[in-house]
């Protein structure tokens, strides 16, 4: 099949989305299913068929989602109802919309770099309640620091059974 001439192509828009919590591994296909489910559930098959959403890229904690021009509002509304992907809790924060993928990639590059998991570890006594490297104490329990970005600190309770993430700040650790 030969490609359509530009005048006969449908105009598309691309939406840049930041994935929270930071450091979440994104499977593009599974995220597509989660978004597709959210769109269909909210708007029904008829509108979902018009939106034609697709996950076109996932990089550096961000995702670029494609839709038909004019359906951005419906898609962004549906994106705010995405709460999990493959039983992993997440939130999609809309950053920008554009007509080209490249401008959104520029936006990712010029924006604040998203730190990789455990890229910045709180060390020593400052803010860790005197715990050892990469560990902290909160509410009289020991936690492992999995992500730290500015004031924000994500921790997981030490031990095999409890892998539940807690979302704290450095001030919380200093005061505990």
């Amino acid at each position: 099949m030969s490609p359509r001439p530009p005048t006969l192509r449908e105009s598309r828009r691309y939406i840049l989305v930041r994935v929270n919590p930071a450091g979440t591994t994104i499977d593009q296909k599974e995220l597509y299913y989660a978004i597709s489910d959210a769109v269909t559930s909210l708007w029904g098959d008829a509108v979902a068929g018009v939106i034609m959403q697709a996950v076109v890229a996932a990089e550096n904690g961000h995702v670029i989602i494609r839709c038909l021009r004019g359906t951005e509002k419906e898609l962004t509304l549906a994106l705010s109802t995405v709460t999990a992907c493959l039983d992993v809790r997440l939130a999609l924060r809309i950053v920008a919309a554009s007509g080209t993928i490249e401008s959104l990639r520029d936006r990712i590059r010029t924006g604040k770099p998203v730190a990789e998991p455990a890229s910045e570890i709180i060390t020593g006594s400052a803010g860790t309640g005197g715990a050892e490297h990469g560990e902290c104490v909160f509410a009289e329990k020991s936690f492992l620091i999995v992500h730290c970005n500015g004031q924000k600190v994500d921790v997981i309770e030490k031990g095999f059974k409890n892998a539940h993430r807690l979302f704290l700040t450095k001030s919380d650790l200093e005061n505990s």
Partner: peptide, 11 residues
């Protein structure tokens, strides 16, 4: 917020 949820009130 924590302890009802998983996020501290500051966060």
């Amino acid at each position: 917020p924590y302890p009802c949820g998983d996020t501290s009130v500051r966060r």
